[in-house]
Design a protein around this nucleic acid. Structure first.
Lengths: 158, 158
DNA sequence: TGTGCTTAGTTGCAAATGAAACTATATCGC
DNA sequence: GCGATATAGTTTCATTTGCAACTAAGCACA
């Protein structure tokens, strides 16, 4: 038995209590449940939906800006954009002063899909969050923000 | 302007505040930062590490039990187990009474790796969580548990 | 004992992903 | 203006993933 002076045994690694594991499971379940609602119905992958979601909120972003805001990498964005262009859900206009980049925005068709999915997504989010009281929600929000900040301080990887 | 009676405009979908998005980004950053520490050093993929992590904690599980505990699917587990067997980090013994399944456990070699990674993983978790006060941690823990429970109530998919 | 149903785990194949190389344009230093 | 360097976005290729089909073993009940 450790002497009372040093104590603090290294805690065992229990998966069920391990932060990365819990985050990953929760994240997959939540995203998965929402994706299930739109993926087959609109033939839309998760990356595609992410791109549409950000452009629905703020149009006329370049691919690079989309990548930044969604925390996706540029290849992923490029591919999602291509398939969305092909499906005429997105349109692209050359940037007037920079021939390398282009502004992306939803077409009417894309907008219509966005307008259908967005409330649905918010509704499902609401359903998840209904497990928490308003106070708990506010607390969770704050804690997530702190952890996200810490993650970008440490990881610095995206 | 909405009449005071109905109010409650549908909130816009802002990615930065959207739960699935925030969870996904945070989860990827945290898991990624930890994976970076072991993946190249030990030539270990995330699924492989998950299998080792659960068997390090509780040996002699079948592949099915590993899948349940890690929330991975059985194909993923099967493949991770195969490569771990090949690397002699895992061993497999036939279940005496059920020829279909087998008990898995770490070999000495696997255990040595586990013993090296586990403290490192816990240390990094600690680093992330050091952004929170002890009280905040406890709160976060409780909120995550509530949300996880809600997710399995709703999603019911894995 | 045998016929049909369930479960554990593997395999095959198509699609998704990620890293690195590549193209095209822009900018900097001179 | 011109070579060197940087940036936006795409393509290529090897790897990883996920689904569905499959094999093999147990179970159940006649």
């Amino acid at each position: 038995m450790p002497s009372s002076a040093q104590a603090a045994a290294a805690p065992r690694l229990e998966l069920e209590r391990f932060l990365p594991y819990r985050l990953s499971v929760l994240s997959n379940r939540v995203s998965g449940a929402i994706a299930k609602q739109y993926s087959s119905r609109f033939d839309l992958s998760i990356p595609e939906w992410r791109v549409m979601a950000v452009l629905g909120g703020t149009p006329n972003l370049s691919a690079r800006e989309v990548a930044q805001r969604t925390a996706m990498d540029k290849v992923q964005v490029s591919r999602a954009v291509q398939s969305l262009l092909k499906a005429k859900r997105l349109q692209r206009e050359k940037h007037p002063h920079d021939g390398r980049s282009a502004h992306l925005s939803l077409t009417a068709k894309g907008q219509a899909i966005y307008d259908e999915i967005a409330p649905l997504a918010l509704h499902l989010e609401e359903l998840f969050l209904s497990a928490l009281t308003p106070l708990e929600r506010a607390a969770f929000d704050k804690l997530m923000a702190k952890l996200a900040r810490q993650a970008s301080l440490l990881g610095a990887n995206p």
